Amino acid sequence: MEATVAERGQITLPKAVRDALGLTKGTILKVELDGGRIILRKDVSEALRKVRGRFRLVDGHASTDDALRASRGRAPGDPVEP
């Protein structure tokens, strides 16, 4: 796939790319340089902000760590027992 840089420095991403990544008008992309490559990343921080606090833990767990301990036996950061 190719994209051409327009007079004002804009490019149009191919429709297949936009569809595959769920990019719509107003989607924010993070732009990074890696040597001679341009890396575009979809900014998901706004989507995370919208859902933060909307989900509740089941079975009366006070925290995510408590829920993980109940299901896995340990949570991230817990010491590993030999």
Rank of each mutant, 00 (worst) to 15 (best):
G26E: 08
R54D: 06
R49I: 01
M1G: 15
P79F: 00
V80Y: 03
D78W: 04
D19S: 04
L29P: 05
P14S: 11
L57W: 01
R54P: 06
S45V: 10
A75M: 03
E2K: 14
P82D: 09
H61T: 06
L23Q: 07
K42F: 02
F55W: 06
E32M: 15
Q10G: 06
R69C: 02
P14D: 10
G35W: 07
D66C: 05
E81R: 15
V5W: 05
T4L: 12
V5H: 09
K15V: 15
K25L: 11
P76E: 02
R49T: 01
V80Q: 12
P76C: 01
D59A: 12
D19G: 09
A62K: 10
H61L: 06
T27L: 05
R8M: 11
D34I: 14
R49P: 00
E7G: 14
A62H: 08
A20G: 05
A47C: 01
G53S: 08
R72L: 13
V17W: 12
K25R: 12
A67V: 07
R74S: 12
E32C: 04
L29C: 12
A67T: 07
I38A: 15
R18W: 04
V58R: 14
K42N: 02
R54G: 03
G73W: 01
G35E: 07
F55R: 11
K25D: 15
V31D: 11
P82S: 07
G53E: 02
P14G: 07
G73H: 02
R72Q: 06
H61Q: 12
S63D: 10
E46G: 12
I38E: 11
K50Q: 15
L57G: 06
T64W: 06
H61P: 01
S71L: 13
K25G: 09
D66A: 12
A16Q: 14
D19F: 07
R37G: 05
A47H: 04
A16M: 07
D65N: 13
G22D: 08
L13V: 13
D65P: 04
A3D: 03
K50D: 14
E7H: 09
G22T: 05
P14Q: 14
L23F: 09
K30T: 12
A62P: 01
R69T: 05
L13I: 14
L33G: 13
P76Y: 02
V44W: 00
E81S: 14
R37F: 07
A67H: 02
D78T: 06
P14L: 09
R41P: 04
D34K: 15
Q10S: 11
V17I: 15
H61N: 13
D59M: 04
L23W: 01
A67Q: 11
H61R: 09
K42E: 10
I38F: 09
R37H: 12
A47Y: 05
E32L: 14
R41M: 11
L40K: 09
A16L: 13
K25Y: 00
V44T: 12
G60T: 02
G53Q: 04
A75W: 04
